[in-house]
Design a protein around this nucleic acid. Sequence first.
DNA 1: ATTTAATCGAGACGGTACGTCATGTCTTCGG
DNA 2: CCGAAGACATGACGTACCGTCTCGATTAAAT
Lengths: 193, 193, 193, 193
Amino acid sequence: MHDSKEPRPHTGRRRNEAARRAILDAALDLLADADGAPVSVETIARAAGVGKQTLYRWWPSKGAVLLEALTDRAAQEVPTPDTGSLREDLRALATATFETSQRPPSAPALRTLVREAARDPHLAELMGEFTKTRRAAVRAVLVRGRERGELPAGRDVELLVDQFYGFFWYRFLLGHGPLDRDTAVRLADSLIE
Amino acid sequence: MHDSKEPRPHTGRRRNEAARRAILDAALDLLADADGAPVSVETIARAAGVGKQTLYRWWPSKGAVLLEALTDRAAQEVPTPDTGSLREDLRALATATFETSQRPPSAPALRTLVREAARDPHLAELMGEFTKTRRAAVRAVLVRGRERGELPAGRDVELLVDQFYGFFWYRFLLGHGPLDRDTAVRLADSLIE
Amino acid sequence: MHDSKEPRPHTGRRRNEAARRAILDAALDLLADADGAPVSVETIARAAGVGKQTLYRWWPSKGAVLLEALTDRAAQEVPTPDTGSLREDLRALATATFETSQRPPSAPALRTLVREAARDPHLAELMGEFTKTRRAAVRAVLVRGRERGELPAGRDVELLVDQFYGFFWYRFLLGHGPLDRDTAVRLADSLIE
Amino acid sequence: MHDSKEPRPHTGRRRNEAARRAILDAALDLLADADGAPVSVETIARAAGVGKQTLYRWWPSKGAVLLEALTDRAAQEVPTPDTGSLREDLRALATATFETSQRPPSAPALRTLVREAARDPHLAELMGEFTKTRRAAVRAVLVRGRERGELPAGRDVELLVDQFYGFFWYRFLLGHGPLDRDTAVRLADSLIE
DNA sequence: ATTTAATCGAGACGGTACGTCATGTCTTCGG
DNA sequence: CCGAAGACATGACGTACCGTCTCGATTAAAT
């Protein structure tokens, strides 16, 4: 995997990009392999062929490493569809969210990450940052739809956003129901009647 | 707390109910005090004035103790309201769920418990049993409503159940939005239009 | 030859000499205070202000710690008297052996150590190394005496060595008879008639 | 061996001799199998098909069980040879002592027993009783010899007794030298010149 | 003949110690 | 000054025995 035996060259006093990559790659691999089981700092360091201190020097916590490992590969741009139709936009968002979450290496790694976040307040906060953007996308779509009159006046946008993501995380973490394209459409439709 | 100095009497070769109670009480107290922070087996044992082995003898995992600590006190009967109106039933369920979750000692203890479940597959499974009953109540209400024609034909009951509990857990764990009576009503209404 | 493994350049933090000393000092104190009673690893670690792991890192067993604690202070040079007279040499050895064993902190610590060795095969082996040197000294004196004709030809040197140390340990551990200077002289004389 | 499945019959309020036998037999077996390794009370009880309390009811300590296990089978009469010759008597004693100690099941069991005694002061005391008789035999032989003038006047009998048994235990426990018939003869001769 | 009382197997109990593991900090060295 | 290596204090983990205690069944002795 990353166990090429020729040692990484040191880079003296600048940050070693190769070490950073090795760490993130190792972390992502472990995150994915673990599928929920905890990932220790020592394991990451060993797998990356790196000292623990190098981890602690550059990231404030294990969670931060894991989060970055997961996110730096994923396309970070969160698309905010704007088709002119609330229904279509919402369907697109739901479909994209569900699909991304199912594709490796995301799925197991993400699950592990959330498990870790449950224990690590720091990581939880970072995850909050991470999800804020995505919540904003859903909110934007809803607000736009409401302005176009596609949403009854009384509807609470925050409530809908939480229904959207609440449903998603619930199914994602418990895994008791599908997160397929059909479900995405039904969820989107359900939210706007 | 439980530090009455007269020692618990032994009960011979039968399980000692007093020890069981002491453990569950101690666990619940710690669970509540911790508010999310992990609770160690040693701490529970010490607080209960009990040897660790007594814990391991009767519960397969720490999580199992915590879950039982939380649930054996709570009224376990899950009420399934049946007012004849889907809207009313659902509002009642949501209101009850939210309220219970906010009342001490439940709230912090429950949060800790879920945190632990994120790490402990065994506990996760036990939690699944625990929530199954509650899901069933929501499902029953929805099915009854559909049979009365209060729910549009195409609606997917499982989807709605997951929206209900997904929303609840999402807000409960993240704590970024209220779980008050008003929210309960809005959620209930939102689910059936 | 170049097939020797490149010696690891020993990067990494060095062994903490202060911790080593603290452990050995604590162990010796406890060994002496215990006077035969078992000494636990946890106690040593706590007394030394050290993590248990630090003990397990550097010593293969508790016994090894105890032995080192006892021996690193004692002058390890075993004097081999050579007065030209077998009788005098043997008397000197016996006197020295008995005296050392009675002087604190040796006596109670040594007793504890032997008790531990009875349970810990690893320690027993280490003790064997430790005593080998002392046996050698007695043997050397006897062989020299035999060469000078001070020992009847037929005498078995190994037998005499074991009589010497057998007697010593027997009295030392059981404590039913004195190990004073007079006894030393009588033992020495008894061995060579 | 002792795992006949038909349960021992109860004997009501009298001590159950069958249980006593089962315990001693199991203890001796374990003592022999262990060859130095510790033998736990629970193990004895389980092997004997007996409750722990039955052990603690009849013996003050684990050591007492082990000692009785070892001794009740052995012929307890300690022969005091009286041939009229000190040399012959001493040779006979040494030979008998060495031989008994080598014969199964004695050897490994005895070794284990002594190991335990090193930790258990109670057992050590019991062992003292046990050995007192044997010491007395050696002492009697020596005294008789001295009265016959076979022992130089100045000789200290206690010193000789301790040389005799010190040598024996030293070799027996450390196992670095033989305890055969020839050695017995040499030891005996060495003690009286 | 009916109590009474002690034994037995079983095993739960409160403890102590074990040896392992992971955490996050600190220290040393080579590049 | 960076990066690898790894020692360090801390503290939880789950296991093994310890010696005490209490059961419920059994059976001999005392009433």
